[in-house]
Structures are given as C-alpha cells and as structure tokens.
Computed example of a mutant assay.
Amino acid sequence: MTTETVRENPPSTIIAAFFGFLASTVSAIAGGLVILSSRADIEAALRKSDPQVAQDQLDRLTLLAQAIPVAIALVVAIVYLWLSFRLKAGRNWARVTLTVFTLLQAGSLLATEPSWAGYVSCGVAVVATVLSYLPPSNRYVAGVRRAV
C-alpha cells in the first residue's frame, strides 16, 4: 500500500466513524438548542431559587444560564469537528483524543440529567469510537503513521 493510497482511501470503518462523530456533534448542538428553547423553565427555576430577585437581574441570569452551556456546546462542536477530520486523515492522536472525549461524555451522563440529545450523541460517539479501533482502522492509522 503506497503513501498516497493510504492517505486517499480511508477504510469504511474510518469513514463510518468520521460520520458518526459528525452526527454526534450535530446531536450535541441540538441539545444546546433545546436550552435556548427552555427560557421559561430556566427563568422559573431561577425565580424559585430566589423569589426576591428583581426582574432585570432575573433576565440577565436567565440569559447567562442559556448562553454558557450553548457557548460550551459550540466550542466542543468545533473541536469535535476538527478532531473528526484529523481522524479521517488517519491521525492516531485524534482517535485517542476522541476516545477520551467520548468516555468523558459517557461519564457526564451519569453525573447530570441529560436530554434525549445527550443520550443520542453519546451513543453515536461510542459506536464511532469502536469503529475507529476495528482492524481496518488500525491498519489505516498505522499506515499513515509509517508514511508520515
């Protein structure tokens, strides 16, 4: 197998893992959008925690409670996308990093109350991680490593 062949033709397992991580990213973004649509619930929870808070302060707190998770989701999505493309290029460090992120994502399911999008995103990421370690993927990554 030549260097050009290795770089141009990732196996189907890597392609499936790549698309799996893309789908996981999209479902994570969907979870972030759910937060944007939950303004009334967030405001009610904040009001319940401090009934004496002024309306203008409540509005700012609600916006902050929406903005922080959405910003984090966007940053994570950008990093996931970049790592997915590096995985497709056969970079082992990207595969290892995606594995660690997937394990952290699975752990977060136990520590939080995730939405349906969180479960879908994690499930797809787990499948993508497994695909990235199957024998054809291992051969591809090893071939790219030798070529570099």
Score class of each variant (00 low, 15 high):
R47I: 12
I78E: 00
V96W: 06
L36D: 09
S12R: 12
G32E: 04
A65N: 00
A77E: 01
I72Y: 07
D50N: 15
D59W: 13
A30H: 03
T5K: 13
Q105W: 07
V100N: 02
V79I: 14
L104K: 00
R39P: 05
L46F: 11
T25V: 12
W93I: 10
G118T: 11
K88C: 08
L104T: 03
S37N: 08
V75D: 06
T13P: 04
T102R: 00
L87G: 02
F21D: 03
V75S: 08
A73M: 13
S121A: 15
K88N: 08
I15S: 12
V120I: 15
I29D: 00
I42F: 03
G20Q: 06
I14D: 06
T112K: 08
I68R: 00
D56C: 07
T62R: 01
P114R: 02
L33E: 01
L109T: 00
E43C: 06
R91M: 11
L22V: 15
W93C: 02
Y80D: 11
L103C: 05
L63H: 01
T102Y: 06
Y119S: 05
N92F: 09
L33C: 00
D59A: 14
R95H: 03
S27M: 14
R47E: 15
G20H: 01
A28V: 09
V124Y: 09
R86G: 10
I15K: 15
V34Y: 07
D41K: 11
T13L: 03
L46V: 09
A65P: 01
N92T: 14
A28F: 12
F101I: 05
P69E: 05
S12Y: 12
G20A: 07
F101A: 00
A54E: 10
A40K: 05
I78S: 04
V75Q: 05
V76N: 01
L64F: 01
I15Q: 13
L104Y: 00
F21A: 05
K88R: 14
W116M: 12
P11G: 04
G118M: 11
F85L: 15
P11N: 08
A44W: 03
S108K: 05
V26K: 06
L98T: 09
Q55D: 13
T112D: 06
R95W: 09
G123Q: 06
L36R: 10
V96H: 03
V53D: 05
T13Q: 02
A23K: 08
V76L: 10
F18N: 10
P11L: 13
V26C: 07
I78M: 08
A73I: 13
V26M: 06
R47N: 08
G20F: 07
V70W: 10
R91Y: 06
W93H: 05
T99F: 09
A71P: 01
F101L: 02
Q66S: 02
L98M: 10
G118H: 04
A89G: 08
V75F: 13
L64H: 01
A106V: 13
V96A: 12
